[in-house]
Design a protein around this nucleic acid. Sequence first.
DNA 1: TTATCTAACTTAACAACGTTAGATTTCTTA
DNA 2: TAAGAAATCTAACGTTGTTAAGTTAGATAA
Lengths: 210, 210
Amino acid sequence: MGIQERREREKQEVRKKILDAARELFAREGYEAVTMRRIADRIEYSPTAIYLHFKDKETLIRELCANDFRELAHAFARIAQEPNPIERLRKLGLAYVGFAIDYPNHYRLMFMTPHPHLDPCEMDLQKGNPEEDAYAFLKATIAQAIEEGRLRPELTDPELAAQLAWASMHGLVSLHIAKGDDPWVEWRPLAQAASLMVEVCLRGITREGK
Amino acid sequence: MGIQERREREKQEVRKKILDAARELFAREGYEAVTMRRIADRIEYSPTAIYLHFKDKETLIRELCANDFRELAHAFARIAQEPNPIERLRKLGLAYVGFAIDYPNHYRLMFMTPHPHLDPCEMDLQKGNPEEDAYAFLKATIAQAIEEGRLRPELTDPELAAQLAWASMHGLVSLHIAKGDDPWVEWRPLAQAASLMVEVCLRGITREGK
DNA sequence: TTATCTAACTTAACAACGTTAGATTTCTTA
DNA sequence: TAAGAAATCTAACGTTGTTAAGTTAGATAA
């Protein structure tokens, strides 16, 4: 009896329609434009139909986030081939900024908005698996750099060092997203600032020898 | 005829009441808790009375921000006495993080939330005046460091260098505010990370000679 | 003192939001 | 063909920011 399976498949299709509509609305017009009613309009369902697939708006948004986290991790995984940990850090930094430039709205939601993280990682992301966890990947790279004696002696804690490196790049992109069109500051091009930041940061954490 | 003046004074008093109520609501319960109706409740006026003093919620919030920008600039101004620009940068970094720790909700609004900055600086902050413009103060300090030949030769643009320094510290505090209670990351204490970040950043931008 | 005018303020309402309860349609199964 | 279950919709509630129209209070002028 493949009927139940077909029904399930149809249900997943609607679910995917909702996610796609939300994602596009999101990417094109930003967070504020994503309302249940507008999503419903796009997929030609009533607003309440969404609640058959998602508990509430927050969990819908969270699922969008989970996908974006995965995509970022995949972008990172493509850099795994680079054997030199310092060079890998350099590439990671630039890839991170590239992701933020490509998906500023997603970035805002992922890293600039406080969420009630009630459910302890209900999203089916595998924490710690570098294939799906970009932070774990960064940490592993930092750990390797420490093991190989490439970082300054005071940097013994991979967790802390990873947070510093992350924060450096995050600071740049998040300022640009939040205040990039604020005339108060004469912003330099993000790409230029990013490559300089990578060098500054690397010089700050590596030993004199390079 | 001091009557008009008294009326004006009374009007300013109500205006101040609104700002104070909004600020406290804000500091205690965060952005989402600040609604026109809750502000009105606190000051025992009707919600619409607020619109006699502020065009809309956005401008009210913006005025709150302007005050916070001023306060941050004042905190910076207290560091102006330090003659050594490198040492001054160190103190600026720590003061910046201290401000963010003391007023996380204000910080979020000031630096982590995109605003429609429609009015070109209608808020009566004096841009460029280091007494009221914290960014100008940072930039001036960086410029002095460059003049004295303390920064690396590739850092010739004070604007760009200031943005890097700012971004480093901002990245740290903004990640803590947005994702500080996300169990995905084993956050190190912000104060510890901040003092390390200051050193890493300084090492990254200064010449070898220190 | 009384009438008038103006500013401050309130009440009532609107549109849009997230969300829930209950009715209705659609499809599967007996 | 009738019964039952799943999917969906309609209508509504309680919020939100905001506007329009009415009301009150105090200052001015007769």
